[in-house]
Each structure stands twice: as C-alpha cells, then as structure tokens.
Amino acid sequence: MSDVITIDVGLVEDERQLHELLGRELDFPSFYGRNWDAFWDAVTGLVEIPSHLRFIGWARLLENVPRGAAMLASQLDRYRREYRPDLRVEFDGPASSDT
C-alpha cells in the first residue's frame, strides 16, 4: 500500500456514500459493515492503513455530512492515539481535529 492515500470526500452526500468511499479507497474487505464500529474494526485489524491520509473536499463533507465528518476525524484521532502515533492525517479545510 502506498505511503500516502488521497481521498476526495467532496461529492459525498450521506454516511452510506462516505462508508462506501472509505471502504473502496482503504481496501476494506467486501464484508465491511459500513458503520463506525465496522470502520474501527477494519482499521484496527483488517487492513493496513498508510502512514499518511489526505482528505480533499473536506469543507463540502462538513456541510453535507457533518456527523460523518466528525466521526471520521474522531475515529482517526483515536486510531493515531492508540495504535499509530506516526499517522499523518490532512484535511484540506477546517476539521474538528486537524492533525
């Protein structure tokens, strides 16, 4: 897996689409449950997360899917704290937890 993954979240209109995009871009298994508990399970045990994630279209995601944006940022912050202090996450706009 590449060291940097760029994910364009600017066209996402709901959490279902956000989970589909994350599953595709992060190579989650086909049985991924498309919810935040399943996201946590995937990143902590099913796939290898690259050392650098870059999200573009973040401001649009905050407008269109504020809960999903907040949950994604929160989950990635938790993952970094608990498993990967070297993880770099970039948002191209304001985020509740810019890292």
Rank of each mutant, 00 (worst) to 15 (best):
S2A: 11
D3W: 11
V4Y: 04
V4W: 04
D8H: 15
V9D: 08
V9S: 02
L11V: 08
V12F: 09
E13P: 07
E15G: 13
R16M: 12
L18K: 03
L18R: 00
H19G: 06
H19A: 09
H19S: 13
E20T: 11
L26T: 04
S30Y: 09
S30N: 05
S30F: 07
F31Y: 15
Y32H: 09
A38G: 11
A38Q: 01
V43A: 00
T44F: 04
T44Y: 03
T44S: 10
G45F: 01
L46Y: 10
H52W: 07
H52K: 13
L53R: 01
R54W: 08
R54E: 10
I56E: 10
R60H: 05
R60I: 00
L62R: 15
L62W: 02
P66D: 00
P66R: 01
R67W: 11
G68F: 00
A69R: 02
A70Q: 13
A70C: 06
L72H: 00
S74T: 15
S74E: 14
Q75T: 03
L76W: 04
L76F: 11
L76S: 04
L76E: 04
L76Y: 06
R78M: 14
R78I: 07
Y79E: 05
E82Y: 15
Y83T: 05
Y83N: 10
Y83D: 04
D86K: 13
D92H: 12
G93H: 09
A95W: 02
S96A: 12
S96Q: 13
